[in-house]
Design a protein around this nucleic acid. Structure first.
Lengths: 173, 173
DNA sequence: TATTGTTATACTCTATAACTATA
DNA sequence: TATAGTTATAGAGTATAACAATA
C-alpha cells in the first residue's frame, strides 16, 4: 500500500495506488444500494450464463411467468406489477411475440386492451426455462438456511413494497 | 376472480383474467432472484429520481467513489471490482471524462495503463452527490433496525462473494 | 378527459470481437 | 503470450414525448 495524501486537484506520484494494489470500497461499504446492486449483478450474470441457450432475460422470464399465471392480462397490468414503463413493456412483448412465445388478442371487454397469452411454444419454452432457473436459483439459495432465506426475502419485499419511491417521485406528467 | 381452466393452447373466454383483476405473482413468489430484482429496481428508480439533476447513474457514482478512494487505479481494476466488462468500463469512463468529472493520465509504472483521477469538478460533483444519496439511502434504511440492516447487507454480500458465478461460467475465451 | 396501445427517439448498460501498444 | 486500452457493433432495458383509438 501507498500512503495517500489526497487533496482535491493535487496528486503527486506518491498519492496514487500502485498496479496490484487491491481496490478499497471505502465509503461504498456502508451503502445499502451498492450491496444490493452488486448482488443483483451477480444474480443477473449467473442467470444470463444459465439461460444463454434459451436466450430469455430475467424480465422476459418474469413476464412469461406472469402471463402464464394471469392469461389475458394486458401490457399495462404487467408493467404496473413489475414497476415498468408502458413503452418498455411494449418493446419487451414485441420481442416475445417476434419469437412466437406470446400472442396478442384484442380484448372482448375493452377495445383499448390486448389480451396477452402464451403460445404453445411459449409454454414449452417456459417449462424448459423453469428447470434451468431452478438450478440457477439453487446455486444461491443453498448459501442460506430456510429461515435465513425467509428473512432475506421479507427484507427485499420491504424495499420494493415501501412507499419510498412514491414519496420521492414528482408524480410525473 | 375468474376460474382458470388453463390447458396449453386452449383458452376460452372464461379462462382469462378480467380487466381489474389483480395480477398474481404465482410461481415467482418463491424465486429469490425475482425479489432481488424487484428490490433493485425500486432502489434504482428512487436513485434516478433523486439524482436527476446531477445525472449520475448508480454505476457512475460507484466508479467515482472508487476513484476517489483509489486514485490512480486503472479501468481494469475498477471493472474487476464491480464485475464489469473492460469495454463497458471504457464507455462509462468516457462519459465521465466527457463531463470533466474524471481524468486519464498515462501510468508511469505501466505503459499499457491509464491512471484514473477525479478532476476538481468531479470532486465537487461527488460531494454534492453524496448528500443527495444519503437522503435516498435513508428512505430505505429507515425501514430496518440497525441489526436488520447488518444482517441484510451480510446476506447480499454472501450472494456476490459466492463462487456461484464462477462455478457456472464457462470461463470465457 | 383519461386510458391503452403504439411509434419514435435517445441514453445507458451489457457483452463480444478485433485491433494496437506494451509487458 | 498475456495484458490494458481502444473501437466497433449489437441487443436489452429504461424513459419521454406524441399520436390514435377507445372508454
Amino acid at each position: 500500500m501507498v500512503a495517500k495524501r489526497i487533496q482535491e486537484g493535487s496528486y503527486g506520484p506518491d498519492d496514487v495506488v500502485m498496479p496490484g494494489d487491491p481496490i478499497e470500497t471505502g465509503r461504498l461499504e456502508g451503502v445499502l444500494g451498492f450491496h444490493l446492486r452488486m448482488a443483483s449483478v451477480a444474480f443477473y450474470q449467473d442467470f444470463s450464463a444459465a439461460m444463454s441457450e434459451i436466450g430469455l432475460t430475467q424480465k422476459q422470464f418474469a413476464v412469461m411467468e406472469l402471463i402464464a399465471q394471469n392469461p389475458g392480462s394486458s401490457q399495462i397490468d404487467l408493467a404496473a406489477e413489475l414497476s415498468m414503463d408502458r413503452a418498455t413493456m411494449m418493446a419487451l412483448i414485441n420481442r416475445l411475440q417476434d419469437r412466437n412465445f406470446v400472442e396478442r388478442r384484442p380484448s372482448p371487454f375493452d377495445g383499448r386492451r390486448q389480451q396477452l397469452l402464451l403460445t404453445d411454444h411459449g409454454h414449452a419454452v417456459l417449462a424448459a426455462s423453469r428447470e434451468i432457473i431452478a438450478a440457477h436459483e439453487t446455486r444461491f439459495t443453498e448459501l442460506f438456511t430456510d429461515r435465513e432465506l425467509e428473512t432475506f426475502i421479507s427484507f427485499l419485499k420491504r424495499i420494493y413494497n415501501s412507499s419510498a419511491i412514491k414519496r420521492n417521485s414528482l408524480g410525473s406528467s
